[in-house]
């Protein structure tokens, strides 16, 4: 299935939880936040929160800023 991660279409095998996605991308869950179809996903729900075809996921972190 195709999922838009930070605006880019990427193909993944279903089923895919947020935790699975972070593992595939190699991102540490402690340093980021995830939004799924404009809704925040709580860190505690990463293992159970499933993603589906055409979903939009934003993964953000803190960078330098003023």
């Amino acid at each position: 299935m195709e999922i838009f991660v930070n605006g880019e279409a990427q193909a993944f095998d279903a089923p895919l939880s947020v935790a699975d996605l972070l593992n595939r991308l190699g991102l540490p869950r402690t340093k980021i936040a995830v939004e799924h179809n404009l809704e925040i996903v709580a860190k505690s729900a990463y293992d159970t929160h499933e993603l589906g075809e055409g979903d939009r996921v934003e993964i953000v972190h803190f960078i330098g800023g003023g």
Binding site: N6, E8, I59, H61, G65, G66
Partner: peptide, 12 residues
Amino acid sequence: TVAVRRVNLTDT
């Protein structure tokens, strides 16, 4: 102060 931005997926 810090900013919030997308992570770089090409270099995680």
